[in-house]
């Protein structure tokens, strides 16, 4: 059923469908609204359409039909970092800043600011291959934040990281979200992760946005907090239905 598009929604899917090469259906009749400042987590099985939703928002691909409203300034953190191997940490962070009429000094100062924000001091001159998985993830986040986007997209940024690093990055992401007030849309394969971070959880399966859950719980959220576990169980029931 179509959802009402609310005026403060920063992203709205209105009957959006995506088909590749006229035959591979990736998303059918998607309706969804993401309010400004929300932390939306997209969960779903592989091949269910969650990456398509993210790619449509990122502008990597266009909708075949329907209307998708989104802001112009969007940045993305990729699953494997997608850092340029020949660029240093600082150069990677400033990747999206060139060609925007900024002076080199300004570009450097912005890159330094986000390098510091993500705890990358001392690593500025290093190449991505000299960094750990967590550090690479931080560079990816710093690169995305450096362009000051309206919406920050995260494509399973924690999937290849160890639990300790993941936990640290959870805290970083929540801190950035609270400090900047940016809208975050994150694809995750983990329901627990989505409930731990998001203010809303979108269940995408069978190439459609099946259900949207609002999560109204204080942070931090973890398995020792009963309402958190209740939300996880609730979403799991819908997920596996």
């Amino acid at each position: 059923m179509p959802k009402n598009i609310v005026s403060n929604n920063i992203i709205s899917f209105n009957n959006v469908s995506k088909t590749y090469d006229d035959r591979d259906v990736a998303l059918v009749g998607a309706y969804c609204s993401i309010p400004q400042g929300a932390f939306a987590c997209i969960i779903g099985p592989s091949g269910g359409g969650k990456s398509t939703v993210l790619k449509l928002i990122a502008g990597i691909t266009d909708a075949t039909s329907g209307t998708l409203s989104k802001p112009k300034h969007i940045a993305m953190v990729f699953q494997d970092g997608a850092l340029m191997p020949w660029l240093s940490v600082l150069e990677n962070i400033s990747f999206g800043l060139h060609g925007k009429g900024l002076s080199m000094a300004r570009i450097r100062s912005i890159a330094m600011k986000y390098s510091k924000m993500m705890g990358l001091q001392g690593l500025e001159a290093k190449l991505p291959r000299e960094l750990s998985g967590g550090e690479r993830g931080r560079v990816g986040i710093a690169r995305a934040l450096a362009v000051n986007p309206h919406v920050l997209l995260l494509d399973e940024p924690f999937s290849a990281l160890d639990p300790k690093t993941t936990d640290e990055l959870y805290k970083d992401i929540i801190k950035i979200w609270k400090e900047t007030g940016k809208t975050i849309v994150m694809v995750s394969h983990s329901i627990e992760e989505a409930v731990a971070l998001g203010t809303m959880v979108l269940v995408v399966k069978e190439r459609a946005i099946k259900k949207v859950f609002e999560i109204d719980l204080p942070y931090p959220r973890h398995e020792h907090i009963l309402p958190y576990m209740r939300e996880v169980r609730h979403i799991k029931r819908e997920f596996f239905k």
């Binding site: 790619k55 990122a58 502008g59 990597i60 969007i74 940045a75 993305m76 990729f78 699953q79 494997d80 997608a82 340029m84 990747f95 999206g96 060139h98 060609g99 925007k100 690169r143 362009v147 997209l153």
Partner: peptide, 14 residues
């Protein structure tokens, strides 16, 4: 060239 790299360039307006 990994697809992610091309996508990253696209997203960051390169």
């Amino acid at each position: 060239i990994p697809r992610d790299i091309s996508w990253a360039a696209h997203v960051f307006g390169v």
